[in-house]
Amino acid sequence: MSTELIHPENPVEQFLRSDRIPHIWCPGCGIGTTVNCFTRALIDSKANLDKLAIVSGIGCTGRVAGYLDLDSFHTTHGRAIPFATGLKLANPDLSVVVYSGDGDLFAIGGNHFIHAARRNVDIKVVCVNNLVYAMTGGQTGPTTPGSVVTATNPYGTFEPSFNLPQLAEAAGAVYVARWTTFHVRQLARSMYEMFQKKGFSFIEVLSPCPTLYQRRNKMGDGLDTMKSYKEKSKKRDGAPTSEVPLTRDGEIVVGKFVDRERPDYLTLMKAQFQASLGERYQEPEMHSGCEFEQSEIDGGTICQ
């Protein structure tokens, strides 16, 4: 019997909107690699895909939502986290994942990131960090390290950059990890762990941007970057996040840095209301749709 006929399908396939593939990402870009890891984590965690929503902002990573066969939202630039907050609070049965880039989440969306972490809203945030604004042509971002050339720092960057795990921990995230697109098994495992956590969880994934970061800095292509991840990464689970900043050519500390328990937003909210209001407190009931007989009005289904 031919193995071609009975071989298993690529595990990622069942999660893709296959009519939208091939995707728009460049050769050697790592975003697709993170998607593989994400789907393996979904399989391992036996996630109910009908109750899983993915929210992206704007940018290259912002396009992830459009390729995954889930309830998916491609929102405005920087606002994936507050959108996800509303989605989660209105329907706590949903598992809500924010999947976006470093510029989207930490420059224009930085304020929302720290506040959602502070509130400990139960959302999972995956940041694909390619160290640059890629979709718009390679401008400096909040994670761009010093001494690299970008479209807006043609003479070299000089602004200090964010150390994302430290920022996430300081703001209150209950789970903080960093991997690169070289660490596919570890990343998939980390995403699995993230799904087991209740509360604001954060994974940073370093990813090549051969077109707009590596090329300008004569760092080679995507494969060269993957090799450099392999060489320069050092796994240090539990490392103090203050010790893991990224530099242009230095060591990349990867691992799980934070895994702690804090009551999430809705838990705190309900506890407070129950303490203050006792039996008067009503659990949120959001249903806005029709519970009654449906009829046709103007061709649409509006309820009477």
């Binding site: 606002r79 609070l89 959001m286």
Partner: peptide
């Protein structure tokens, strides 16, 4: 900025 998009997330979650 947040308020005006959070409410839209809630709408897609089923709320008015």
């Amino acid at each position: 900025l947040a308020a005006s998009i959070t409410l839209q997330g809630a709408v897609w979650g089923g709320a008015k």
